[in-house]
Design a protein around this nucleic acid. Structure first.
Lengths: 321, 321
DNA sequence: CTGTTAGCGCCTTCAG
DNA sequence: CTGAAGGCGCTAACAG
């Protein structure tokens, strides 16, 4: 290789490390050759040596096209970059199988660890076995009960509880909940907070107001439209995330003039055009980038498993239109 | 390692490859040990061997929190996954320096190639040298004049031209352009298309209607508000991308009742709540996921450098509120 | 059918 | 101050 610079590989190595004992002159010669040939150390070979890591971190998210996960990844990378580590990113689209493949691949690449937003479902034996065989794993956004792996989540229950109380205090009783889903931690917790608030105020949760199994924005929109056409439709909606809220919002806007005067909505996750909403929107906002940073920091700290909970903030949209 | 299964490493290798000559029985024994120990091949060591690649592809984007780039990355990964390749993702935040670091790192990790959405600026000597020293590079979304590297871009000029003509045909003459930026390919091309359409229709482009150097949504919003307060403010706006459009949209909505009846906007990039806009919105829409797929395919095909242009579609928002 | 040898690129250790 | 030897995990090529 750069031996064409007249020295041994060992000298090249030393020159590149700077610390070693090399004449200023030979060092110059080596660096010149390096520049000329555009040489760069083979990190894979490097990581092969005992005591060296790959400096790679595997990250899986369920949907990178959701800006929340985009922000999350930025936060992760921000922290990791300061430690010279890089991100291998995998998008699972909520597929357990894909998640498994990705984690197996991460293991093969000798990643220092993995940050995982677990896909929907309960079969998390692969995460268990990964952790068991020594891979550091941090779960983010969604935790998994019974899996003793570090995780960082939001105050999902409390946020949902508080926002629901706000709705109730505004006089709502028929409140729809959109986005319940078995096997998705955030959906379950947020529903639990919602239901608890209802129960604490003596309001029963009507089953037909609870929308689950809806996927895309369009589908939510159609479902809510259907609900509006029935008698005694909800006077308020709680959406478990930004995608669901978009569907509800679109349905409500179309129905705008037939809705009750006090029609209101809760959106878990912030919402870019909230200030344009003709209805009051109670927003449960949080900082996904901070969650990314936290997950990365937890991965780097080699302490024991721990669970961290990040705060959420309840905010009322200020109508500006 | 898995020699604890009673055989040599060679036999393990053969058992894992399946093809080799191994007794069904020993193979079983090896696979059992593999399962038990949770062993997985070291891909880094593997890639060290002659003729083997790392199966890693470096990808840099300017802002992964923009859902367009999220979709883009999904498209990239979709194609690469079919070839057993993984993505190392880096977010540049439009920083040349960061882009350089990332590409240098990619080189060190022996990536098979890199897909780059170049950061703003003209100093692309590092891309040049990467390509020169044999790294396959595909530029996406933004091309770089004079750099003979493959690229996939949108029909930026034509899309901007056509959309502008639509505005002009609706009777607009005072049209603002938001998002010009030196050194950003898409901004330059889209502005060129806009300016050409204006010129072809004998309408001069007023300098004070051309907004540049604006970054975030808030900043755009404020700037446009300022413009509205001046006499003879634009009766229509062309936004060079989804972020800019959001700022313009918000400013316009606040000013809603003082704007001319035919106030209209062009948004390059689709726009989730376009159907709610009280003003007509002409949308230049396109498919970022398809761009990701294309970029990945171009990287994998080892042909000569080529430039591909993906189509855009002009669409009028259907007002549904 | 299975094991040994050798070398991918790096760097710790030990000789010059 | 510099070089040679050896081994990280893997597998093609060559024994046996």
């Amino acid at each position: 290789m750069a031996l064409k610079a007249g020295v041994s590989t060992m000298t090249v190595s030393r020159a590149l490390h700077d610390n070693g004992n090399v004449t200023e002159e030979t060092k110059e010669r080596v660096l010149a050759a390096v520049r000329e040939l555009g040489y760069s150390r083979n990190e894979n070979a490097r990581s092969l040596r005992p005591g060296h890591s790959s400096n790679l971190i595997g990250v899986t998210v369920t949907d990178i096209s959701n800006p929340y996960y985009g922000e999350f990844v930025i936060g992760v990378e921000e922290v990791l970059a300061q430690h010279g580590k890089r991100v291998i990113l995998g998008n699972t689209s909520e597929s357990q199988e894909r998640e498994e493949q990705l984690l197996a691949d991460f293991a093969g690449r000798q990643v220092d660890g993995a940050i995982v937003v677990p896909a929907a479902g309960t079969e998390h034996t692969h995460l268990r076995s990964m952790a068991d065989r020594g891979m550091r794993v941090v779960l983010a956004s969604r935790s998994i009960d019974g899996l003793d792996v570090s995780s960082v989540v939001l105050a999902d229950f409390q946020g949902a509880y508080d926002a629901t109380v706000e709705l109730i205090r505004s006089g709502h009783e028929r409140i729809g909940f959109v986005g319940w889903a078995e096997g998705i931690y955030t959906a379950v917790k947020r529903y639990a907070g919602f239901a608890q608030a209802m129960s604490d105020h003596g309001i029963p949760v009507e089953e037909r107001y609870v929308i689950d199994r809806v996927q895309g924005v369009e589908e939510v929109e159609k479902t809510i439209q259907g609900l509006f056409e029935q008698p005694k439709s909800p006077t308020a909606f709680f959406s478990a995330n930004n995608r669901h809220h978009m569907g509800v919002f679109r349905a409500a806007l179309q129905r705008r003039h037939e809705l009750p005067d006090n029609f209101a909505m809760v959106s878990f996750d912030d919402f870019e055009l909230s200030s344009l909403s003709p209805f009051p929107v109670i927003i449960v906002s949080h900082d996904p980038r901070e969650m990314g940073r936290t997950a990365a920091e937890m991965l780097l700290e080699s302490g024991r498993e721990e669970q961290r909970v990040l705060p959420v903030h309840i905010r009322r949209s200020v109508r500006r239109v």
